[in-house]
Design a binder for these strands. Structure first.
Lengths: 180, 180
DNA sequence: TTATAATTTCAGTAATTTCTGAAAATTAAG
DNA sequence: CTTAATTTTCAGAAATTACTGAAATTATAA
């Protein structure tokens, strides 16, 4: 690997973490490198910097594009494709979260739905009830996430900072409303 | 695999999803099966039901215990260890989230911190700024999560249901306070 | 067109992860 | 203690996933 000591540890770490976030080591490293690079990079530069094959980079780029985490940026006077992160750190984080939701939570919900449909199964079995509980929790979560996702970043950040403080605000609201 | 058709699809699915949640197929299936089982199960029952080796089950149990997702429950008149989920669906979900935070977010933060410390690196480089941004976002997230985590489930559920509605409540609060 | 540059594909190989099953260790009863 | 039941460990095998590099494809310029 051929990276400055300033960024190498993070790029390597992100490669290792990659699997947790749903992609492999190379894809994780590519993404980290692109995020930390001021200028857009082409496939050869990525392969050279990370010391992996050209083919591997090509597959990784496809993957990152399918996650909408990067986009191409044409460079005047160069026919190569150049790639950059597709938005701010905040937007990228949001994008990872919604992509994971789509790839992990949605399929689980769909399995649960079809199981809960099956009338034959004793509808009040313990297992049925548990699946219903998981189903309801996932739906609650998805509804919340969709909702949150539409908020503008500034309000959302404020909300994050508040943390459980919202609880207090909600209490206050109730008290104020009761008094009319 | 030797399971009732009522639960088999979910157990299989949860095994496949397992890797996304940080464990392997067998561990995922074991967990799903334990959650859907009214009675506690011993290692032999798990191996038999899921059609995997005894050794594999032993390793899986260790893993689930380390995640604090299951616990043993002594059965009178049987020296075997019996296992059950360690809490309600809600508690288990919370447990997965905080364990993942500990295993995934914390190490990333620690790498970022040590990189941001290094004074030699041009402190205002593009990469430095980006790492700072990621660092700050992760800290914000962790603070929020810790905070949220301490709330009681009922309030938390209310909050989830509200979704972006909190935004409106916050606005209202401001308006009410300004008016005094 | 034709030549050249750039990218993608994919069969084969390498690396990693998971799983088995028998042996070792542990626990508890007699 | 001794014995039997239970659990854990771990070397090797199996399964899965990732990677390479050369050939095929696509895109661009001359």
């Amino acid at each position: 690997m051929n990276l400055s000591p300033e960024i190498e540890p993070f790029v390597i770490h992100f490669g290792e973490m990659g699997s947790h976030w749903g992609f492999n080591r190379t894809v994780g490293q590519m993404f980290a490198l692109l995020v930390l690079s001021e200028d857009a990079l082409n496939a050869d530069q990525l392969a050279e910097s990370l010391d992996v094959s050209r083919g591997n980079v090509s597959m990784g780029l496809k993957e990152l594009l399918s996650w909408r985490l990067i986009r191409t940026q044409p460079q005047p006077g160069d026919r190569k494709d150049y790639f950059r992160p597709n938005g701010s750190i905040w937007e990228l984080a949001m994008q990872v979260l919604s992509e994971r939701r789509k790839r992990e939570v949605d399929p689980t919900l769909s399995v649960l739905r079809s199981q809960l449909m099956r009338v034959e199964d004793g509808n009040n079995s313990f297992a049925h009830d548990k699946m219903q509980e998981i189903h309801d929790l996932l739906e609650l979560f998805i509804g919340w996430f969709d909702d949150i996702h539409r908020m503008n970043p500034e309000n959302l950040k404020t909300l994050l900072k508040l943390g459980s403080g919202v609880g207090k605000v909600l209490d206050m609201k109730d008290r104020l409303l009761v008094k009319k």
